[in-house]
Simulated assay, not measured.
Amino acid sequence: MPHFEDFYADKLRGSLGVTDAESVLDLRGTNRPTSEASLNDMLERSRFGKGKTVAIRFDPPPEGGGETLFQPVGRLLLDAKRKGIVDRLQTLPAGDGLGFYVALAGKTTRSNE
């Protein structure tokens, strides 16, 4: 869409989901420490490669309510966004389940720290 800035063009296209991502980090069925370790590993490795998009998926709340990985994973991703490791962060569309769509900055687009 040549007449729109990327931000507004993406709004018109709708939410980006699992099928739009270059890869998927599937944390369904994992516990919190394992999920956090996997996410931290992905974020650390992304600092040395090219930028890419990742769909991060995790389990919905158990029947009757309970904790999910939404808040702890969200906090880690927001911190990574503040540090410049993550360029874009949004929730997955409802049809894709619970998770995030993340655009990792990669080595080439980040400034030297």
Rank of each mutant, 00 (worst) to 15 (best):
A55P: 04
G14T: 02
G106C: 03
R28I: 12
A37D: 14
E67I: 07
R13Q: 00
S111T: 00
V24T: 12
L12I: 08
F48I: 12
G51P: 06
M42S: 14
T91L: 13
M1H: 13
G65R: 08
D79R: 14
S23G: 05
G51E: 06
Q71P: 03
V24N: 07
G49D: 13
D59C: 12
D6P: 15
P62A: 10
F100H: 07
P33Y: 09
T109D: 12
D20K: 06
D20R: 10
A80F: 02
P93Y: 01
L27E: 09
V86Y: 06
N31Q: 10
P93L: 02
E67Q: 14
A80Y: 01
G65F: 09
L27C: 10
L39W: 05
T53R: 08
R32I: 04
T53E: 05
E44V: 12
I85E: 05
G74V: 04
N31L: 10
P72T: 03
E67S: 15
K52N: 11
G95A: 00
L39M: 09
G17R: 02
A105Q: 01
E36K: 13
E36I: 15
A103F: 00
L98Y: 14
R45M: 13
E22V: 03
L69I: 10
F7M: 10
L104M: 09
L89F: 11
L76I: 11
A9N: 06
N112I: 10
P33Q: 10
L25T: 09
P93Q: 01
G17I: 01
P2Q: 14
D87S: 15
R57I: 07
P60L: 08
G64R: 11
T68G: 12
G49H: 14
F58L: 04
R57H: 02
S46N: 05
D96T: 07
K83E: 06
S111Q: 00
R47W: 04
R88G: 13
T68A: 12
V54M: 14
F100M: 03
E22N: 03
P93R: 01
G14N: 03
I56H: 11
F7V: 12
R32S: 03
G106V: 05
L27I: 09
T108W: 01
A94P: 03
G51C: 09
Y8W: 14
S111N: 00
G51Q: 11
